[in-house]
Each structure stands twice: as structure tokens, then as C-alpha cells.
Design a protein around this nucleic acid. Sequence first.
DNA 1: TACCATTAATTGTCTGACAATTAATGGTAT
DNA 2: ATACCATTAATTGTCAGACAATTAATGGTA
Lengths: 243, 243
Amino acid sequence: MQNEQPFQRLQVELERMIAKKGAGAKLPSEPALAKSLGVSRSTLREAMRTFEVQGLIRRRQGQGTFVVGKQKTFEGGLEVLESIETLSERIGLNVSMGEFDIKRFPVSEENRNLVPFPLKTTLIQIERTINTEERPIAYLVDILPVTILDEKDLQNGFDGSVLDWLLKRGDPVLSQSNTRIDSVEASSEIAHKLQIQRGAALLFFESDVYDTSNQIVTHSYSYFLPGYFDFHIVRQVAKKYFK
Amino acid sequence: MQNEQPFQRLQVELERMIAKKGAGAKLPSEPALAKSLGVSRSTLREAMRTFEVQGLIRRRQGQGTFVVGKQKTFEGGLEVLESIETLSERIGLNVSMGEFDIKRFPVSEENRNLVPFPLKTTLIQIERTINTEERPIAYLVDILPVTILDEKDLQNGFDGSVLDWLLKRGDPVLSQSNTRIDSVEASSEIAHKLQIQRGAALLFFESDVYDTSNQIVTHSYSYFLPGYFDFHIVRQVAKKYFK
DNA sequence: TACCATTAATTGTCTGACAATTAATGGTAT
DNA sequence: ATACCATTAATTGTCAGACAATTAATGGTA
């Protein structure tokens, strides 16, 4: 076990409690809650505050604390960094790895604008398609330094997902990614790999993944056939703290 | 002034302080910080905790708290609910409203699956294109009940954005939206409005906007010409609380 | 009925204390 | 000199208790 601090337990118990109550429901008073959860009021308030800034509850001095009951951000939308394989599994899509190709090349003067790694870094590029029973539905390209992952690593239980593999190894510790979203028309090369017509519309993600010390780990391009994935995102009104 | 509670001020001051320090920097100890910011340690810790769950800082018992220095989520990505007009302005794109059309229709048996409003609700549908100097770059459709907004409202300072207009009116109080992201090929109708070829790839958003009591306010479709907008999103590794 | 002071309930903040954890320090045996 | 270990200082984690500020309800009064 890693964390048995009261706060951690509190966080999950409180979240469950909030989820169980419907929108608008009133929570017990802080002294009462603290007692029933077996923590001090200060600790309870730290947890409450985190839920408040997330907008899950609303506290009013003199009245009490109420459940706002909005959709949680971290619940399966695009806000979570997860692999296509994991995502597919979660939504019940049965996928397998299709065509698979690995290249090795250094960062040169010609391609340095295309990849966010220093000059002369040796990179490894992993291309693959994701298939359902019937057809390929995505084409993914991951680019990362060989110092992080090389060809022989790929034999140890590699199932197609670089992200999953890195998460499993736990080194480097990944923390977040920055993903650009756009729409593109399939080039003839990609059209061939996905067995579609050249010029067909594809959903396109360009993504940089960072580790906990904010170092870039991988750069990747993803092309998705429209309609097969349910990418969605919860967006918040900018004004975070209102009363 | 709305909020002069110490916590609110703390939140912004602390954020500034964290932003100023580089990644890996160590913050002063809690007692010292609390004193220098003029609040109690408890209050400081509430604020710290919110930054910790956001992953901006990392605290280690016995050592101190350190700046992680990751990109803030709320800083201009897709996580913020804002209008295309506001977004365009922020990224320095000069846009104006192009073609504009309003329809009125009730929810019937035929269309009830297309809109998330109860049967027989009278809806108003606002279509418009967004233009730069040279060309149209987006086509937007908003659908909402007339009880929320009707034709005559649209004369009071309506600049094209339903979202901005509702935010300005402040009633209902908007809180968040749920947006589905996909890629589509332009229908002949939309191709005509955007002056592109039929079948060209478009970035497509389908979005529901909710108010603070979680009632749906508007349903909208947005079609964007690829390349003109920089939609991006920061994604987090699922494991929120690590140590 | 309308208005107003009182009161109970609740969140907001503060103070002071102690426990738990970590890294540094310095001593001791090899 | 080196390796190991106990001690200590610094820091975060948690707790208990108190009081202030705010709100809604209560009940009295004109």
C-alpha cells in the first residue's frame, strides 16, 4: 500500500458520498461529518475544498454544503490520458494490433522542425494500425528517443501501445500530455493503410507526452476513422470561483 | 467586490508565486509561508491541497513542497467553455459574423432523437457562419428553447455568439458543457456555406451546454475548417494522487 | 400584515499542539 | 578511511478547540 493517510481515504469516501447524493442534496455539517468519518474538521475541510474548486459541491456560510451534481471531469472523457487500446476496451470495442512497423532515425537539420527532440537524438518511430474484426479504424505513430525505449524492449509483453507499455514499466513516470485536435484528409499512404479512399475525412490528434519533471517523452500522431470512437470533453465556464 | 475571503486572495497569490518559481523549486515552509501571506496555516493548507490535487505542486513530509511546473489545464485549451468569437479574439484572429439564419420549430416525433429537449418544446435554431477577411472558416448551429432566448432578445446587442450572449445576460447561469469531437465530410449544403468542396474534411463538435443546476440549455453543432483553429487539450494520467 | 431583533445552525479562520517522515549530522566499530 | 547507526532538526500531516461571519428561522411588536 502506498498511501494510507487519512486524507486519501477521506477523498474517496467523500467522493462516494457526494456521488450517492443527488444534485442539490445537503451534506451533514462539517463537525458531524468529521466525526462520522473519523477525521478532524481541518482535514475534512481540505478535502471539501478540493471538491469545491472542482465544482462538485457548493458551500454557503450559514447554510451548509450542497451537492452540485455536475458531471465529473475525470470520468472517461478526453481529459484522461489513456491509450487507444485501453479506451477501446472501456467502451467495449474489441480491437487488435494490425500492421506494425519500426524505424530508427536521428534528428537532423531536415526533420528537426517536425519532432520536438534535440538535434542528433536517435529516435525510434513505431507505426501501427488498430483493427476491429472488420476493418482498420486508426493509424498511430509514436516517436521517442531510443534511450527511453528501444527495439528489444518491444519484445517484453508489448501489445501495441507505447503508452500502456511505458505506464506499466513506470519509468519515466508519465504525468500528462498536450494534444492538438484537427481534421485532415487522408493522404494516399494513410488511405491505403486504413483501407479508405484518399481524401476521406479523418480525426487527427497530435500529442506530446510529458513525464513528472516535465520532460517530453513521446511525440505522436493519431488518425481516427470518424464515428468509431466517442471522444468527448467536459468544458468549464472560465469563472472558477463563484459564490 | 464579490469575494474578499482570505482563501480567495490566497489562491491567486499562491498561484502567482508558484508560477513565478520554476519547476523543481522549493517553496518556503508552511509556517513561514502562512506568516508571510498573512493567513493561518490551516487556510494555507487548504489552498495548497487544491494545488496539489491539480498536480501543480508536490509535498513531501519531512522535505517540503516543490513546484512541479506542469502546464495549467485552465489556460486556453479546450477545457474552457468559451465562444468561437472569444477564442478567435484570444488567438488574434479577426472574425465577423457571416450568413445568419433563425428558425423556429417544435420538438416532434421525427426529430426528438436529434435534440435533447422534451417533446413539444418550441425551439429556436440559430445558424451562422464565422468569417475572416478572406473566407468563412466555421459554421455553427445553436438550438435552444425559446423560453431561454427568443427572436427579440437577439436584437439587444447580439454579436453572433449565443454563448457570449447568455454569459452576458447571466441567466441561466452556465456552468459547463459536454462536447463530442469528430471529423466529418462536408455535405453539399455545408460545403456551399463554407465555400469548399463537398466531401472536404471538417472538424466537428457536438456540444450540450448546462447551467448550474445541471439543466441543459443549448445543443449545438459546430463545423470548423481544418487548420484555422488551434484546439488543444491537456490530458492527465488517470492516477490522480501519487506520492 | 409588515417589520425588526434575537437566536440557532453552519461555514470561515485562527492558534497551538503533537505525530510522522526525511535528510543531514556526527559518532562508533571495523 | 569506510560503513553503519543513532540523534537531531526541519518539514508536512493531523488534531482539538475556539471564535468570527453569515444565513435562515423564530417570534415579538407596531
